[in-house]
């Protein structure tokens, strides 16, 4: 190999190394962007599959109270009023308000539930007990801790309480299963009291609600079918663990 060939070869290699050094970060960015786009489209597809409850524009628009965090540091809940066309059917209505809660507020720091969590199913039994089945992300993506887990559950129970008077108690399932805790702290084996306003049973006085700062029900909510009779005691407050199921 002649010296001129050698210098051409070395020069070519140097150019290739420099080219690779410049191109590699660009390539890495492109791969990351492609992965992110794929993730987003998967998330979108999952949401479309798991949240088939479309808002019907024909439904009356009502002021809906959704409970998110009022202050990221203080960790307290505050209602945010949004106008939504809500169904009068309590199950559809519950799905609509919970999906709104899951979608989160404008400021992502104020959300109470993980962005990748979704509502898989919602049932309402004749005695006013609701069963909400959330995806596994609710348990796996939530920040672990008593305060964060309690905020999550309270935001669910208080949003239901403010908008769906038929729901008296709530059982939370994760991916169709009963779990012991949400993320290591908050007990999910029992039911949470949602609505302390017990329906007026014939011949029975209505107990006084213990909560003094109970949010008023929206006008449309009051027009919804009569709530199913429930047997709650007056001293139960929203978000507290209610009657535990019989356990082995």
């Amino acid at each position: 190999m002649t010296p001129s060939w050698k210098s051409w070869l070395i020069g070519g290699l140097v150019v290739a190394v420099f080219g690779a050094a410049i191109y590699f970060p660009i390539l890495r960015r492109r791969v990351k962007r492609a992965a992110r786009l794929q993730q987003q489209s998967e998330e979108q597809a999952r949401r479309e599959l798991t949240q088939p409850i479309a808002i019907n524009p024909g439904d009356p628009r009502v002021k809906t109270k959704v409970f998110w965090v009022s202050d990221a540091i203080d960790s307290t809940l505050a209602p945010v009023t949004v106008e939504l066309p809500l169904s009068n059917d309590p199950v559809l209505r519950s799905k609509q308000v919970l999906n709104t809660l899951l979608a989160g507020p404008v400021d992502a720091e104020l959300r109470t539930l993980p962005p990748d969590a979704s509502l898989l199913a919602f049932y309402l039994l004749p005695d006013g007990t609701a069963i909400a089945d959330f995806s596994e992300a609710l348990a796996t993506s939530i920040p672990s801790g008593i305060v964060s887990e309690q905020l999550a559950v309270n935001s669910i129970t208080r949003t239901l309480e403010a908008n769906v008077p038929q729901v008296q108690r709530l059982k939370i399932l994760i991916h169709g299963q009963e779990v012991e805790t949400l993320a290591g702290h908050l007990d999910l084996t029992g039911t949470f009291v949602v609505n302390t306003k017990v329906a007026q049973e014939p011949g029975k006085p209505t107990p006084t609600a213990s909560s003094t700062d109970k949010p008023a029900l929206p006008a449309a909510a009051e027009k919804t079918p009569t709530p199913v009779l429930a047997t709650l005691t007056a001293d139960e407050a929203p978000g507290k663990l209610g009657q535990t199921e019989s356990r082995p």
Partner: peptide, 21 residues
């Protein structure tokens, strides 16, 4: 004894169990 993921750093909260039947 627990350490939280959230809340104002440098503070401490005591919890008792919610009412039980």
């Amino acid at each position: 004894l627990h350490i939280s993921s959230t809340g104002l750093p440098g503070t401490a909260r005591v919890y008792v169990n919610s009412d039980l039947p």
